[in-house]
Amino acid sequence: MNDITFDEISQRAEAITTPVRSPWAVVLRRLARHRSAQMGSVLILFFVLVAVLAPIVYPYNAIVDSNPVNRLKPPSAAHLFGTDSLGRDILVRIAHGARISLGVGVLSVLLAAVVGVLLGLIAGQAGGWLDNLLMRGMDILMAVPDLLLAIVIVAIRGPGLGNALLAISVVTVPGYARLARSMAISLRENDFIMAARSLGVSTSEILRTHILPNSLSPIIVQFTLGVASAILEMAALGFLGLGQQPPWPEWGAMLSDSAKFLGAGAWWALTFPGLAIMLSVLGFNLLGDGLRDVLDPRLKR
């Protein structure tokens, strides 16, 4: 989600200018009451549990799991989601695929957020030519559509999970850089920070009590929504054969494998991995939405 409109920036700037007292307890309480945040959290929690428990409940060796005799069987008591073209249980693969999708989603955005926020803060603090240089660099990255840029990066570095993760991170960086820069600038010129400074409050104190709590909320929102996009992008790369290589289960790759069997009527092989992608992405989008409502005072009228 790289499209930050002027509107959003001004919203965020407003959010920042409103001092918060005991921020996190308030936020959590509000969040717990927020409907879409509830739904999102439940979905995310569900997938996290699946990812964590999958190897404990059903240890899985993707390399030797193959039973061609049992291939493309529709859902049954033995295989709730049916089997794929190699006779593998789709439910098991989706469960283990959750580890890859959630892991890559979170990791790539984390990487992008750290790099992006760092670059943005530097640009915002330094100003001048460095600011210009960094931000034009971000503009250049943003000029190429995310998926195209990611595909090209993977094409250069070769298909694989690590390169896909890197590619997604690269395309995600500019969003954070812009966000962090606008925060750095608005905070630098902010009245209450100037006031605090003039009262002799130390820089670290200002950082701890004012800047951090105030700047974290938009980043958290962006992060949550970013994970959603990253999971989608990962699935798209996997679908195009550029992500995780077989035999390890990745949802997008599972979809492209299954697409071949539509003619044979194997609807289950296409439906369930797609649902897994959609629901997990929906979870992060719902939570992000809720977080935005709760953290953005303007919408709380």
């Binding site: 798209a236 679908f239 979809l255 797609g274 959609m278 992405v281 989008n285 939405d289």
Partner: peptide, 16 residues
């Protein structure tokens, strides 16, 4: 929200 969460290639295949 479901719309933005939908993998476009999945939707395309399902529609097909």
């Amino acid at each position: 929200l479901v719309g933005v969460s939908m993998p476009i290639f999945w939707l395309g295949l399902m529609m097909q």
